[in-house]
């Protein structure tokens, strides 16, 4: 085949696709209500995992500043008296880099240990309380950079009344563990909702195929290939997918807009300037591509299943 011939063939193919492309919009726009309903269902299904993803992103961003905001556990020497502890607590509270100091007395520590360890009876045998007094120091958010926390830790360690001072990262680790679980939950939810979108598109296309049964029969009678008959349905699925994704985009954007005011006020209370992350480009792109892909796959499955059943007789 000559190059010129190839070129015209490609041109013809492109023209045919464009024809069907616009023809399918025309068909859909004839029943705008059902088009909107289907797209809205798809939109909601896509909006849910998208907004969860954005929320998670925000939580991550918010908590990334908390790495250094861990608590400092200050274990005091045995010789330190109750008054000295009180004085130290007072002194620490006055420091601008410290937000909160909680005192756990030796007695409290022992009670807690008894309750939690289950060694209650064994501990009764001890003549004296082996546990030290503890001060839990919570660094102020404004001074929560890792280096600042480190400096604070050093400062506390220098105090003569202090036996050991150590950073307690436990709760940050827990937070991350929880976020990891939530992240997996979002993936599972997204998978389930993707399945729901496939079913919605598939069912809509199935109905469209049934409605156009006569037309499909005529097409087959006069030599329409499966590809030719399939094409408008695939484009219909494409339109459902992209419209659903666009609706999801607007829903998530609107929700974030409504949330941004209260969130800013809340974070302001913690003297923290935090700006809510909007739908970024890559998330939006993923949303669009997922919508289109699900629309196409859903219609492909429906067409594959139902087009063969329709044969002229």
């Amino acid at each position: 085949m000559s190059r010129h011939n190839l070129k015209t063939r490609g041109h013809v193919l492109l023209m045919r696709h464009l024809q069907v492309f616009f023809y399918s919009i025309g068909q859909l726009s004839r029943s705008p209500f059902s088009l909107f309903m289907t797209s809205a269902v798809i939109g909601i299904a896509l909006a849910l995992p998208t907004s969860l993803h954005i929320l998670l992103k925000n939580a991550q961003q918010l908590s990334s500043g908390w790495d250094g905001a861990a608590q400092i556990s200050v274990f005091l020497k045995e010789s330190v008296s109750e008054q000295q502890v009180q004085a130290l607590q007072k002194y620490l509270r006055k420091q601008k880099e410290i937000a909160e100091v909680t005192y756990i007395s030796r007695q409290q520590a022992l009670e807690e240990f008894k309750a939690q360890s289950g060694f209650g009876d064994a501990l009764k045998a001890l003549k004296s309380n082996p546990l030290p007094s503890v001060l839990i120091v919570q660094p102020a958010l404004a001074h929560s950079e890792p280096l600042q926390t480190e400096a604070l830790l050093e400062k506390i360690r220098k105090d003569k009344r202090v036996e050991i001072a150590q950073l307690d990262m436990q709760w940050v680790k827990r937070l991350y563990a929880i976020m990891d679980i939530v992240r997996r939950g979002v993936v599972v939810l997204a998978a389930l909702l993707a399945l729901a979108v496939l079913l919605v598109v598939g069912n809509t296309i199935r109905l469209a195929i049934q409605n156009r049964r006569d037309e499909i029969v005529v097409m087959k009678l006069i030599g329409g290939t499966d590809a030719f008959i399939r094409r408008p349905f695939l484009y219909t699925g494409f339109w459902y997918g992209i419209l659903g994704a666009m609706l999801a985009f607007f829903m998530v954007t609107l929700a974030l807009l409504l949330l941004s005011g209260p969130v800013e006020r809340l974070t302001a209370l913690y003297q923290n300037s935090f700006e809510l992350t909007r739908l970024d480009f890559s998330t939006s792109l993923t949303l669009m591509i997922s919508g289109i892909a699900l629309g196409l796959i859903g219609s492909w499955l429906a067409v594959g299943r139902h087009l063969r059943e329709i044969e002229p007789a």
Binding site: V12, M15, I222, G223
Partner: peptide
């Protein structure tokens, strides 16, 4: 329709 199906030029 048969011409469209066969892809005849416009």
């Amino acid at each position: 329709l048969p011409l469209i199906i066969a892809g005849s030029p416009r």
